[in-house]
Design a protein around this nucleic acid. Structure first.
Lengths: 234, 234
DNA sequence: TAGTGGTCTAGACCACCCG
DNA sequence: GGGTGGTCTAGACCACTAT
């Protein structure tokens, strides 16, 4: 391994390291030279090498541990990034007009499945909302929203006839942890009507559980219109 | 805004900046002080402030541009990270045994929809594979795979009866760009049989198009077993 | 042209963690 | 205990871009 030309940027170093991994110059599960040695080889500094390796680890190619060193992962774990935006923004980004409609709002005791989903032993007191989001007056998403009243002070005073629960929540309560689930579900008769779907038609469905330091804040199930596709690149 | 205690790490600075955004000390669409001034306020250096702001931008809270400065985004775009691993690894990670089965393999001219999907004007010469992935002998995923022969030298010599096309491809050809799509589809009679699904049952379906510097490499459609959920956190 | 963020250098101290 | 990565400092030059 001869010394390459100097003045390598951290991007250059990332590229070279990735090449050597794909080359199998550095085999899976093997250790890379330490940062000081690599800096010497690249006529660079530890800071620059550090940034290159840190980002490659972040991208799933390397594993880094103090004392042990930097190891090539045998099955690089790539990650796709999915942008989580407000439904309003997702719709207006396509150039369509956004419309929101509140179907119903009811204070109630949460059902058992909800307590289980929120890791609660007792059924929480919740505000249960159903609403629709439209793009150019075509059904876009049906939202089934449950908000834990104890966790969200002021929620009973909010007016959800004009603003969607998600938009209200993001500016009203902080959160620390979110679990997102995607699945295919069968359209129920109730939802069918709002989404203009056929009976039993497959729907792309997302569920989101939001926590604030271990306390559950809200659970939402969102059914997208038939034919919806979630697209991402990496 | 008085000067806080010194010795703030970039993590501390991230936390403080985030607080001020949620506080509305710094309003959406407004500009933050420049890095030099922030470094002075935090009794830190530009390097440290830079890392904090860079990561917050990466996480979707800020937008940074030279000359203009650093701006608070009005609708922070959060991102969920979805780990993309080999089906084998996804299965063995749950403790289940992995089994792979090649249903069919055929060299053919790609259909029109495939050419369109790959941005090609002419139908490419492709290798078309169908295969199954099992977890503990239960159907896990049906894979419909199309490989552009011109883009993948040696693919005709590969033996896909033992190794899945994705596993073979990741170690045989590099790629630069991947487009991933998720949707809900209706189980076709053909797939129904392999996935042990009911007729018309909703299936969670992923499609992946892979490119190497503008040249299409492969297209895959993967139907997951009924009830499959893709889970992620952020 | 001028101001901002992007990046690199050279050096230092420290936290973690394996043996 | 000792080696590794994690991070900070202080300073510098540069690339981009709004005006």
């Amino acid at each position: 391994m001869t010394t390459p030309a100097a003045n390598l940027s951290y991007r250059d170093i990332k590229r070279i390291v990735l090449e050597r991994i794909k080359n199998r110059t550095w085999l899976p599960d093997s250790l890379l030279p330490n940062e000081t040695d690599l800096a010497a080889e690249f006529s660079s500094t530890r800071t620059t090498v550090n940034r290159a390796l840190r980002e490659l680890a972040e991208e799933g190619y390397l594993e880094r541990k103090r004392k042990t060193g930097t190891r090539v992962l045998n099955a690089p774990v790539r990650h796709a990034r999915i942008a989580i935006s407000l439904t309003r923004d997702e719709i207006t980004a396509t150039g369509a007009a956004y419309r929101y409609y509140l179907i119903s709002s009811k204070r109630q005791s949460g059902p058992e499945w909800l307590a289980a989903r929120l890791n609660l032993k007792q059924s929480p007191d919740v505000l249960h909302l159903k609403c629709m989001h439209y793009a150019d007056n075509k059904p876009f998403q049906f939202e089934d929203r449950w908000i834990v009243i104890d966790s969200v002070p002021g929620v009973l005073d909010a007016d959800f006839s004009e603003i969607g629960p998600n938009e209200w929540l993001v500016q009203a309560v902080p959160f620390t942890n979110v679990e997102l689930t995607f699945q295919a579900t069968r359209a129920t008769p109730y939802v069918t009507e709002f989404l203009n779907a056929e009976q039993d038609e497959p729907l792309f469905t997302a569920e989101r559980v939001t926590w604030l330091q271990g306390r559950p804040v809200t659970f939402a199930r969102m059914h997208f219109h038939p034919g919806y596709r979630m697209v991402t690149q990496y």
